[in-house]
Amino acid sequence: MKKIIIIASSTLLTLLTLACVGAFWGYQTVIEYSQTPLSLSEPRELTVARGTSVNQLAQQLADDGVIQDTWKLKWLLKFRPELANIRSGLYEMSPLQTITDLLNDLIAGKVKTFSLTLVEGKTIAEWEQQLASAPHLKMSPEVFVAVLMEQGDDSALPEGKFFPDTYHYTAEADVKVLLTQSYKMMEQELAKAWAERAPNLPLKSSYEMLILASIVEKETGQAHEREQIAGVFVNRLNQGMRLQTDPTVIYGMGERYKGNITRKDLVEETPFNTYRIFGLPPTPIAAPSKASLAAVSKPASVSYLYFVSRNDGTHVFSSTLEEHNNAVDIYQRKKKPVAPVKSPK
C-alpha cells in the first residue's frame, strides 16, 4: 500500500512538473509571439467593425495574412485579458508593429487620421473635385452651399468664403464638419484683416476685401510681391481705372478657358471681365490666403499703376503707361529695350 502511495505521489509530482513546464513553455511562447512583428511588407489599413470580438479579430487578421497561429493570440488574451477591450474604427497597421502594439492602439482608439490640404488660389469647383477623391470622406452634393445655409449665409455664393489650410479627419467623417471649420476660419481671418485695414481703402465692405484678396492671390507668383500688387489695384480703384486683370477674365470664361485668352475674350462682356467693367467683379475668383488678405488690408504705398510678368514668377512694376509699354515689349514681345533719347547739348 505504501509503495502504491509513493508511486502515485511520484506520478502526480511528475504530471505537475510537466504541467508547470508546459505552462511555462506556453507562457514564454505566447510572450515571444506578442513581441513578434506583424507579417506586413508595407502599411495596411484595418477596419474593426462595431461589435467585433477579439476572436473574430484574430480570424480576420489570420485571413488577411497579418498573423499566424490564432491560438497564440487567444492564449495571449487569457494571460492579458485587458488587451481584449478593443474599439471599432479604421486603423493603420505597420510592419514595425507587434501584435501587442496593434492591440494597444485598438484599445486606445488610435484610429487612422487623414489630412486634406485646401490649397490657396483654387476655386470651389477645383476643391469639389479634390474632396470627391479624398479617401474615407463622406461627400454630399452642393456641400459648400449647404454649409453656407447652415451658417446663416443664404447667398448661395461660396467662392472665396472658405479658408485654405490643412485639415484632419477620421474615416467616414462628414465633409461638412471639415468645411464648417474652414468657413469659420475664413470669417475670423477676414474680420481681423478688415478691422486692421489701412485708412482710406477704396473698399466698402469686408466682402469687397475678400474679392480683391482673391485677385491678388491669383496674380501673385512671389510672396514678397503681394503688397505691391495690392497697391497697384488700390491705386487703380482710387483713380477710377479698370483693374484689367487676366485671372478675372479666366474665371468668367469658366470651362471655356483652355489655357489662352484671345482678343475676343478680352472684349466679351461678362461680370468678371475687368477689361470691360469698372471696379471689382461680383464675387471672389478663388480662395485667398491669409497673406493675400493681409496684403489688401495694408497694401504697399507705391505709385505703381501697372505690372507685367517677367515670365519667371516675378513682375516689373511701372508708374506710367510709357514705362509699362516698354516693359511689355521687353518681357512679352521680346523686343530690345528702347534707349532714352538724349537731349542735344
Rank of each mutant, 00 (worst) to 15 (best):
E217W: 00
P95I: 06
G160V: 02
L148W: 02
K336N: 12
Q228S: 11
I67C: 02
Q151M: 14
K122C: 01
P247L: 12
L16K: 08
Q151S: 13
A58D: 09
D265E: 13
N311T: 09
L46H: 01
S214G: 10
C20T: 13
S88V: 07
P164S: 03
N326H: 13
F24V: 15
E126Q: 15
V175N: 01
T248A: 12
T166E: 08
S289D: 07
L210N: 00
S140Q: 15
V302T: 14
T248P: 09
V341C: 03
E45P: 04
L40V: 06
A213P: 00
D174H: 02
K78I: 14
D153N: 13
L90E: 11
A173K: 05
A8M: 11
V143N: 01
M186C: 04
L203Y: 04
M149S: 11
V48I: 13
S53E: 03
S41E: 08
I229L: 03
I99H: 01
T220L: 08
L76C: 00
T113F: 12
E227R: 03
K78R: 15
G254N: 06
P281G: 06
V111A: 09
F114T: 13
A327Q: 05
A195E: 13
M139E: 06
P340F: 05
G121C: 08
W71V: 05
V267Q: 10
W71Y: 09
